[in-house]
């Protein structure tokens, strides 16, 4: 499913070259549940951004579903993101002026899904995530847990094959955090590949595969 070969990513900070990722080789099969752990600055978010096609590697090859996606131009990468990848962020990233239902609908609007189908899928997702009485509320009228449920509903609205979660519980208390993780793990039953960045060892331990990173390198599994 996901195949990274000798991936490097470096940034220029001032006139110094800083390596965020060094020679990452990684293979993730479809339906895997992977957690990436490590201290801050170890490059785990950079890796997640690369997998999510938000960032390009400085060198190396990234194959998604067997195709080399590093060679794609911006528009083609956007299309891959739209069809295959869902994001769940630490700070939710909901559009403040849109209601919960409209936030869930957003990826389908961008992809040009016909309105009737959109409405149906939004209704299903709202019901699935227990947001029936919150659908017409704006994000600032929702609790943290509800916001993250909206964000997960939005991430799954296009039925992505890969779900990338960057510290999904980072802004939540323990109970709601656990609820959110439960919701994400339910998606594994639908053969979604779940990749989660976290620095909470207890959370990371729930994944079948645990990757540890230090200073831009994979240390062990």
């Amino acid at each position: 499913m996901i195949d990274l070969q000798k991936i490097c990513r470096s940034f220029m900070v001032g006139d110094q070259r800083v390596s965020a990722l060094q020679d990452i080789d990684l293979h993730i099969a479809a339906g895997d549940y992977v957690s990436i752990m490590g201290p801050s600055g170890s490059g785990k978010s950079t890796l997640l951004n690369l997998i999510g096609l938000l960032d390009r590697p400085s060198s190396g090859i990234y194959k998604l579903d067997g195709g080399d996606v590093t060679a794609l131009d911006d528009a083609q990468q956007a299309r891959v993101r739209s069809e295959k990848i869902g994001f769940v962020f630490q700070s939710f990233h909901l559009v403040p002026r849109l209601t919960a239902a409209m936030n869930i609908e957003l990826p389908m609007i961008l992809a040009g899904v016909p309105p009737a189908e959109r409405k149906q899928r939004v209704a299903d997702l709202v019901a699935n995530y227990g947001l029936e009485d919150r659908a017409d509320h704006r994000p600032d009228q929702l609790s943290g847990g509800q916001r993250q449920r909206v964000a997960i509903a939005r991430a799954t609205s296009m039925h992505p094959a890969v779900l990338l979660a960057d510290e999904p519980t980072g802004n939540l208390d323990q109970t709601t955090g656990k609820e959110v993780i439960d919701l994400l793990e339910v998606l594994l039953e639908q053969k979604v590949t779940l990749i989660m960045v976290t620095h909470d060892p207890a959370l990371g331990a729930r994944a079948q595969r645990q990757l540890h990173m230090v200073d831009g390198r994979m240390t062990d599994e």
């Binding site: 299309r79 739209s82 961008l110 992809a111």
Partner: peptide, 10 residues
């Protein structure tokens, strides 16, 4: 940034 992450091309 969000729109881009959700698959909106430039």
């Amino acid at each position: 940034g969000l729109l881009k992450a959700l698959g909106a091309p430039a």
